[in-house]
């Protein structure tokens, strides 16, 4: 049991990026826009952070980490603008535009790596993020703060009520003077920033460079977290913890004689299998925001 406590830092390291991305995904879906581009946006963020940190490290020292994370977030935000413009202003199919960004992410990030570094990945930075004395990375605290702030914003402030109204019934929201377009833009850009930031956290804690396999499905796990967590902050926190632990076990299962007999892939499958099962069990009761995925048209009813 003691050794399991020793694994908590590893688990938290894996949970944090998932939680940050999922929080963004939740904000986005609560405003009525489905964002399956989370995976791609994480790639943009991870690439930008790794690149920025490589160049800034020498001059800025430890401050470079935070600066690079910010740059990663802004890079994600920039590309989420495409999704926002397509799906809100042009009323495009949200799944198609999200898929486009995911495809674009593989191309653009590695293309830029070729331009900057002449190889299909970024050059290694010297020093990633450092854990504290208990071995816990600051990303865990970042994730927690973001989740609590988001909860406060969405459920305790008028702004949050307005944002959620846009996802439930945009026409009603419009009728009481809420600018649905603006709210949805804010939500999509927020999810882009958070996905980018989380990509940065991922690359700074678990890697020393960015390559095409750095993000490796974390964005899709975050998407599963949003569904499994029933679009609520507490649910998302719990789901991230569960899925992150499953992922951690695919790495650490070898330390336990009992688990060593199982193929480690069993733990990789768990987040996805659990989500599918949960979607079936929750079916009938619709927890998803009512208008998520539907473009909003002014005046039409």
């Amino acid at each position: 049991m003691n050794s399991l406590f020793g694994k908590i830092p590893t688990i938290l390291m894996l949970v944090s990026p998932i939680l940050i991305t999922a929080t963004g995904g939740m904000i986005c879906e609560q405003s009525g826009v489905v964002n399956i581009a989370l995976e791609g946006l994480m790639m943009f963020g991870a690439f930008a952070t790794a690149t920025a940190h490589y160049f800034l490290e020498a001059n800025f020292g430890p401050a470079s980490i935070w600066l690079s994370l910010l740059i990663g977030g802004l890079f994600g935000l920039t590309f989420s603008l495409i999704h926002a413009f397509a799906s809100i202003s042009l009323k495009a199919d949200q799944t198609v535009s999200g898929t486009g960004i995911n495809l674009l992410a593989t191309g653009v990030t590695i293309f830029l790596a070729q331009v900057f570094f002449n190889q299909d990945r970024t050059k290694q930075f010297m020093l990633g993020m450092m854990p504290n004395k208990a071995g816990i990375y600051p990303t865990a605290f970042i994730a927690l703060v973001i989740l609590v702030l988001t909860w406060f914003l969405l459920y305790k402030l008028p702004f949050g009520l307005r944002l959620r109204a846009c996802g439930e019934n945009p026409h009603a929201a419009q009728s009481v003077g809420i600018n649905v377009f603006r709210m949805r833009y804010i939500a999509v850009l927020a999810s882009g920033f958070l996905a980018g930031l989380s990509g940065g956290c991922l690359v700074l804690t678990s890697n020393t460079q960015f390559s095409s396999t750095t993000v490796n499905g974390h964005g899709f796990i975050a998407l599963a977290v949003v569904s499994f967590g029933r679009w609520k902050p507490l649910g998302i926190g719990g789901a991230s913890l569960l899925f992150g632990t499953a992922l951690a076990f695919s790495i650490i299962a070898n330390d336990y004689t009992l688990l060593r007999k199982l193929p480690s892939e069993v733990f990789n499958i768990m987040p996805y299998a659990i989500t599918l099962l949960a979607l079936v069990l929750f079916s009938g009761k619709n927890y998803a925001p009512l208008s998520a995925g539907k473009p909003y048209e002014k005046g039409a009813s």
């Binding site: 191309g107 293309f111 331009v115």
Partner: peptide, 25 residues
């Protein structure tokens, strides 16, 4: 020519298809 340019073309094409309603407007 970085070969990733082909993935960029793919991604752009999908995004343009998504916003073709906009193009039409």
């Amino acid at each position: 020519i970085p070969k990733e340019i082909t993935f960029i073309i793919q991604g752009l094409v999908v995004i343009f298809i998504a916003i073709r309603v906009g193009f039409r407007m």
